[in-house]
Design a protein around this nucleic acid. Structure first.
Length: 590
RNA sequence: CGGGGCGUAGCCUAGUGGCUAAGGCGCCUGCUUUGGGAGCAGGAGAUCGGAGGUUCAAGUCCUCUCGCCCCGACCA
């Protein structure tokens, strides 16, 4: 990549801010704004200023190198897609307002791509016809638009963003597993080289509609996802899919069901106490409205009754998945009553017109107390299969202290930010868009696909969040906009310019503070901007034919004689890169 | 989409219904200063988010609207 190696700060387009703009909640975001890396244009819409853009390009280059290393071919697909494609895969109908639609001048339906499965699959359908062309992998780095109902947290959750997305095409699932594993490892290298510690966690495939999926999480209190971790065996998963061990149900014969008066006992705690039974002898019912798509691609709503044993908590994402709903929301009392259910005393027994999802804990536990669908009454000894039926699934939410299903140790929870994800898509898109190939036997088969994303801006935001102190950013040399920040405190001297040009000739990227500002202003700005290597030129040291070199974020300064500046800086750069390369491990693929 | 908050100069803020909208930072000019957010002097920059209304008088009160932030719903 051709990159301008130098910049005089007197010419720099952006400027630093002394005060944090209101609304900068996190330090990382505040410093990116104050240092002049980014600027907000609207809700969830940002410009990258020259400094931020350079950092993004550094990140891009790392991604390109790692994608190329596992056989990726870079390309570019359009942001605007014809709606036709999205109708064919159904996502035009199942995705709500997050997908922006518009018409072109002739009235054709168009969409702004949120991701590029449709575009790439349609392309592959034309390009791939034989098993001889497989496996293959393409990627691009492109703008996405998702009209998120609530952008927030600076660059963490935005509407317009740049994403690297790659797609793999294979003959079979074995091939997919290989490319998936290659991405799995490659992502650790990418985040590691960017200086961002991440963990890979099992995840929900959400709107992507795949099977196996992992998310790469940067653990941070400002994260919006909840991660469940087992410190003992290493199990990690997004809470949306995390599994936990559940107490087995009592081993007893089903008893006769009977109604008891339970006035005012509308919570599990109150009910269990009133009936003098443990919470695990109750079935808790949750009522949600699910939105579904019918065969004609029309949306309709249906009440979902989700049942979970009283000692456990339900996870909405699991309910949505088990119900195969496009989305779910809490149901109103009227909606609940319309299915013959009494809020507060509700159960699927006697209800009609609703979809019942029972957690396996409920299905496997006999004689649970449940609502009687009559105000003030509950039923004792309800039994799944005998008294009501429905879909059985794991809909329990793991939480802090839940027991690990693999090793039995208590698990903990942590907040995380998803900086990347990998999905085994399978044939969902290839089937709906007719992306097939002829195998060795001459048979037409759908291509088996994978999809893999990394949000660049979010990655930069996480790097800033991870690498700062009370004075500003301390960026890793691999993603800093420049490698060296040259601060001259001299006037009427041509030495600073000479050093500046010498560094440039050596291929070093230098931000040169040539302004006529006071020393304090320059030091403060340099600290804020977070470029890793600082060179300071002062009068006293210059009299000794020396300059001062320091590393941002570390105590200590070195005096280096003028002829040794370039070699010393080169060595420092090498050392900093090595430190980053040695600081990360690849977590084994479970 | 529900709840809350905020819109006054590039940034941060002040401003009982009452005279020409105030201050700090930043910016411009000149002089001085140059190893930790300098000093002095002068200066530019605001239709107080927008529209309507109440009033003798609106930055301030009312209505509508637009925008942004936060909590929730939502979300690869």
């Amino acid at each position: 990549m051709r990159r301008n190696l130098r910049m005089r700060m007197s010419q720099l387009f952006s400027r630093t801010l002394r005060q944090a703009p209101s609304g900068a909640e996190s330090k990382g975001y505040e410093y990116l704004l104050r240092a002049g890396y980014i600027k907000q244009l609207g809700a969830g819409i940002f410009s990258a200023l020259p400094l931020g853009f350079r950092s993004l390009r550094k990140i891009e280059e790392i991604i390109r190198e790692e994608m190329d290393a596992i056989g990726g071919q870079e390309m570019l697909m359009p942001v605007v897609n014809t709606a036709e494609l999205w109708k064919e895969t159904g996502r035009y109908f199942t995705i709500d307002k997050e997908l922006s639609r518009f018409k072109d001048r002739t009235g054709r339906d168009m969409v702004l791509a949120m991701t590029h499965e449709e575009a790439v699959t349609a392309l592959a359908a034309q390009e791939i016809s034989s098993y001889k062309q497989l496996p293959c992998m393409v990627y691009h780095i492109q703008t996405k638009w998702r009209d998120d109902p609530r952008p927030r947290a600076g660059l963490i959750r935005v509407r317009e963003f740049t994403m690297k997305d790659s797609y793999t095409f294979d003959e079979d699932y074995e091939g997919l597993a290989k490319q998936y594993a290659a991405h799995y490892e490659s992502y650790f290298k990418i985040f590691g080289r960017c200086g961002l510690p991440v963990i890979a966690v099992g995840s929900d495939s959400g709107m992507m509609g795949g099977k196996v999926a992992h998310e790469y999480m940067y653990l941070s209190p400002i994260g919006e996802d909840t991660i469940i971790l087992c410190g003992s065996c290493g199990y990690t998963a997004n809470r949306q899919v995390a599994v936990c061990a559940k107490d087995p149900g009592d081993d007893e014969q089903p008893q006769d069901m009977r109604e008891v008066a339970t006035p005012g006992k509308v919570t599990i705690e109150a009910l269990a106490e009133f009936l003098d039974i443990p919470a695990k002898k109750t079935a808790k019912a949750l009522f949600l409205m699910g939105t579904f798509t019918d065969d004609e691609n029309q949306e309709y709503d249906q009440l979902i009754v989700a049942l979970i044993r009283g000692d456990l908590e339900a996870e909405d994402a699991k309910i949505q998945k088990a119900a195969r709903a496009n989305r779910i929301r809490g149901a109103s009392d009227e909606e609940i009553r319309s299915c013959g259910i009494e809020p507060g005393y509700g159960s699927p027994i006697g209800a009609s017109g609703c979809l019942v999802i029972a957690d396996d804990s409920v299905a496997g536990s006999p004689n649970l107390a449940a609502g009687a669908n009559r105000e003030g009454y509950h039923l004792l000894n309800t039994n799944f299969g005998r008294d009501y039926t429905g879909t059985v699934a794991d809909i329990a939410g793991a939480r802090d202290g839940s027991i690990c299903a693999s090793c039995g140790a208590p698990m903990s929870s942590s907040r995380g930010i998803e900086v990347g994800n990998i999905f085994q898509l399978g044939t969902r898109y290839s089937e709906s868009l007719g992306c097939t190939f002829q195998d060795r036997q001459g048979k037409q088969k759908p291509v088996v696909m994978g999809s893999y994303g990394i949000g660049l801006g979010r990655l930069l935001a996480c790097i800033a969040e991870e690498h700062h102190d009370e004075k500003g950013l301390i960026l890793p040399i691999t993603s800093a906009p420049y490698q060296v920040h040259l601060v001259s405190l001299l006037k009427d001297s041509d030495v600073p310019d000479l050093i500046y040009h010498e560094l440039r000739r050596a291929g070093i990227e230098v931000l040169y503070d040539d302004r006529t500002e006071s020393a304090g202003v320059k030091f403060t700005d340099a600290e804020l901007m977070g470029i890793p290597i600082h060179i300071t030129l002062g009068k006293k040291n210059l009299e000794k034919e020396c300059v001062e070199i320091s590393l941002r974020g570390l105590e200590g300064k070195e005096l280096i004689s003028l002829p040794n500046v370039v070699s010393c800086i080169t060595a420092k750069m090498y050392q900093l890169k090595q430190e980053i390369m040695n600081s990360f491990d690849v977590q084994p693929l479970a």
